[in-house]
Each structure stands twice: as C-alpha cells, then as structure tokens.
Design a protein around this nucleic acid. Structure first.
Lengths: 147, 147
DNA sequence: TCAATATGATAAGTATACATATCAATTAGA
DNA sequence: TCTAATTGATATGTATACTTATCATATTGA
C-alpha cells in the first residue's frame, strides 16, 4: 500500500504542514506562540479560572502534557496559576493583562492563517475537508487523551 | 472562530486519533513499533542501502529527527548502519533479517488499520478525504522539513 | 464513618519534531 | 586548484505527546 493511500501518513503530513504554517505566521507577526499555547490561551480566556484537567479535556490534550504547556505560559507571564480553595488538588489558570493583550493580537492573525493551512484546496474543498474532519474526529466521543 | 472551524485544530485531533489507533493496533498485535518507525522500515525495505538524508526526504521527516528514529531501529536489531564508502559523510541503512521479519508481520496489520483511523467515515467519504488530503499536502512541493 | 475509589497534578521515561550550530566530507566555481 | 558553498550527520535546546507511577485530596458506598 503506497503512502499516498494511507490516511495515517497523510494526516502526519497535514499536521506537519499545519504546524509549519502556524509557526511561520506567528514568527512573521513577531509573536512567540505555538498552536497548542494558543488553543490553551483561548480556552482560558473563554473560561476564566478553569482548572488544568478541564482545560486539557476541553481541547483534547493529555493531562500530563498540559502541565508543561501551562508552565511555559506562566513563564511568559501570560497566565497565573492558583490553588482552588474548593478543591486543593486543582490548579486554576487565569489570563494576565499581558495574556489578554497577546491573545487579542494573535487571534485575528490565527483566524486568517486557517485558510493558509489548506491553501492547496479551493474554498469548497476546504469546507468539505472541515466537514469530513469533524465527522472523523467526532466519532462516539472519539479518543480522549485526558482520561 | 470556534475550534471546529479551524483546520489546525482538527488536524491535530486527527493526528492524535491516528497515532492512538496505530499504537493500539500494534499493541494488540504484540508489536512494539511506532508509525514513524514503520514508515522508515518500509522505505528502507523498498530502497536498501538508502542513506539517512534521503530516507528523511522520502517520508518528509526532519533530518535531525531521523537520526533518533534510526537509533531506535538499530537498538531493536531491525536495521544496521554503515558508512557509505563513496561518501564518508553518509550512513547507509539496511534491514536485518529480524527487521524484514517484523515488517512482513506488521505490514498487513497496518494496511488493515488504515480504515480504522477514519472509522467515522463511510468508504466514499474516506476516499474523498484521502483525495483532499493528498491535494492539500501536494502543493508545490509542500513543506519539506528535511531541507 | 471509614475504607475503597476516583480525581487533579506532577514526575519519570520514551518518542517524535524542528531550529540552529557545528563538524567532516564533498562539490562547485572563480 | 584552491577556496567557498553545500551537504550528511550529530549535538543542543525547546515543545509537544502519551504511559505509568505516585502523591494528595475528594468522594462514595458499605
């Protein structure tokens, strides 16, 4: 079976293309942010005070991985971590002023980047791809690395 | 822009699903092999004596990453590395008997796994996805991490 | 209520991934 | 032909990712 017939290989290539496009776009905009960091920031913005476990679950990250991501966000001064008094195991994460500012700056750039990721496709094809990808990913709960 | 409309996010989820499906399948078959290792083995099989740089280029890997992958394949006794007498910089990689055996065992299992990766799609949709992915990835040479 | 279980987080170990720097060997060009 | 640029590989540093183990805290059920 040739590589071009293997979804596994194609998806790896797409992922490669996607992250490369993202980091080039961010670099061009002078922002030091990875796609994972953006997704985390956006979710924290939408759900202030969310804890790491729920953050991981929401964007389908591994619970072990999210710790390092939040570490780096904290080191950049974009988020703060605090212990939830209701549940002392949980770390609540919230955006700082600088975090909100960088997110405001990055969000529109990243929205624009989305079509560049699939620049080889027409608008109709891109819509079709998004529909198929959502369907493939949405299967019966799908794979959830946070559990 | 919601995550479900972002190709970048969807592709990351697909990649996650794809690698999880692969490793579960391999684990079930009692084979300790990652998808990256399989692609490398298959290419070495098809091109005996290929050097690391061409191997990386062929499957769109990073030149720096391939070294570690080949290290692990070598440690498992599946490949051997030798210096190309024609170009003493280059390391030629070749399968061992055990490498050929494990590849023979794994290849059909992995072929079967390919449809499981996109199990949420019908056969027609899967074919459509593969066509779109190939088109998206094939853009003007696309991104080549090995350069 | 007290033990069993579950859950949030972190640590350690393994495997990608890529950028950048460096070294050695090769090739190209003045 | 001799230097400059290129190329194969490795080393270093950063960032994901996931598994398994462990710790601390919560929750639950007998």
């Amino acid at each position: 079976m040739p590589l071009t017939a293997m979804p596994g290989h194609l998806i790896r290539r797409l992922h490669q293309l996607s992250t490369a496009t993202f980091s080039e776009g961010m670099k061009a905009a002078g922002i030091d942010m990875t796609s994972v960091q953006f997704a985390a920031l956006q979710t924290i913005h939408d759900t202030p005070g969310i804890d790491q476990a729920r953050l991981a679950h929401h964007i389908a990250y591994d619970r072990a991985t999210i710790g390092g991501v939040v570490d780096r966000l904290e080191r950049k001064g974009w988020v703060t971590r605090s212990i939830n008094p209701e549940d002392k195991r949980a770390r609540q994460v919230a955006l700082t002023g600088r975090g909100r500012a960088i997110l405001r700056k990055a969000a529109p750039i990243i929205s624009d980047l989305q079509s560049d990721i699939l620049s080889g496709l027409s608008d109709a094809e891109r819509a079709q791809f998004i529909a198929l990808a959502n369907k493939a990913v949405g299967v019966e709960g799908g794979f959830d690395p946070s559990r």
